[in-house]
Computed example of a mutant assay.
Amino acid sequence: MSEQPLTDLSQPEPVSGWNAAISSWLPAVILLLMTIVLWEAAVRIFSISSFIVPAPSEIAKSLVAQWGTLMQATVVTAGEILFGFLVSVVVGIALALVIVRFDWLGRALYPLVVLFQNVPKVALAPIFILWFGYGLAPKIGLILVIAFFPVTLSMLAGMQSVDRSLLSLMNSVGASRTQILFRIRVPHSLPSLMAGTKIAATLSVIGAIVGEFAGASDGLGYVIQFASTQLDTALVFAALLLVSVLGIAFYYAAEILERFVVPWAPKFSRA
């Protein structure tokens, strides 16, 4: 009589992609819906003026009524964010490579980079407007000074955490510093770099909005500022909602990019 193989109960059944996505997003969706319901109820029960805090239904009405204007502003702001983010990533990577490759220049640059990061970025916005005018350049400059630092710092941390025995091995076979940099340090730093780009993606949204606050004729930051002067609080919240959507979109775009760049990272490995 043949024995039936026992099922290994210690190994969980693999979860399908859709089920994993639903289980990941469901708590956030439930919490968001609960917040909206409680918000709407609180505004109606306590008769809070829409001038102070508009109800979600009022925000939705403003979103529908101003849909064309808001979509045009969203496209403008999204373009600024994308361009500024790409410039920030390029500059951040270049700085990290220079600091690691050239010791003397790295010792000179790194303290200046940290010092520059402590400068209030809001204070730089009017200066950039004065230097570059009211076009795209001041927004890109502001995004750059806000978003490049996490890229540089994350890549530096990755490149400087390489196993010393591996570096000694490369030195023993006669590898140059440039070869060690691009064959060992840079590949090793990619997971850390991608984590820094996700931070930079969200900071780029902040930089674009601050730049539009300082001086712009279009974009979500301009809409928020204009609606504030008109005491249209519902429109302010509608624009803020779209800013949040942009932030989430850019963050998860960086997350998807991370899956393509470092699919071998431990966070993506399957059990």
Rank of each mutant, 00 (worst) to 15 (best):
M159T: 02
P138H: 12
M1N: 13
R44K: 08
F268D: 06
P120K: 10
T202W: 02
S204V: 11
A60D: 11
Q11G: 05
Q66H: 10
A254V: 04
G106D: 10
D163Y: 06
E255H: 09
A137G: 12
S2W: 14
Q72V: 08
L181F: 05
I224L: 08
W25L: 14
G17I: 00
F149C: 04
V98W: 01
G215A: 11
S244D: 14
G207S: 09
S23R: 09
L124F: 06
V75D: 12
F237P: 01
A125K: 01
A78Y: 12
I93V: 11
I224W: 07
V223F: 05
L97D: 02
S269V: 04
V87T: 06
E3T: 11
R259D: 02
I48T: 03
E13H: 11
T74Q: 05
G174H: 15
P12E: 01
R44V: 00
P150K: 01
I140D: 12
S88H: 07
L136W: 02
R107C: 04
I140R: 11
L231Y: 15
V243F: 09
Q72R: 09
V114D: 04
V261Q: 08
T202M: 07
P56F: 06
L142R: 00
A157N: 06
G17R: 04
K61I: 10
V262P: 12
S47R: 11
I224Y: 10
V98H: 01
M71V: 06
P263G: 02
R185W: 01
L231E: 10
S165L: 09
A55T: 07
G84M: 11
M194W: 02
L156Q: 03
L240T: 01
L124E: 02
V261K: 03
A137D: 13
G215N: 05
A147E: 02
N19A: 14
G79N: 15
Q4H: 04
V262R: 13
I146W: 00
G219I: 06
V90F: 14
S269F: 01
Q72G: 14
G17Q: 02
G79W: 10
L220H: 11
V43F: 07
I184G: 11
A21V: 12
R185V: 00
S228Y: 15
A41Y: 10
I256G: 05
L257A: 11
I184T: 10
I256E: 04
L38A: 07
A137S: 14
A216K: 01
K121G: 09
V243G: 11
A201P: 05
N19Q: 14
A271Y: 15
I45K: 15
G84P: 10
I59L: 03
A227V: 07
V223W: 06
I199S: 08
I45Q: 15
T7R: 14
T77E: 00
L169K: 08
L156E: 02
P111F: 13
L246D: 06
I248S: 03
S10Y: 07
A108D: 10
F128N: 06
F237M: 09
I184C: 13
A73W: 07
I224V: 15
L220G: 08
I184H: 04
S172V: 00
L109K: 00
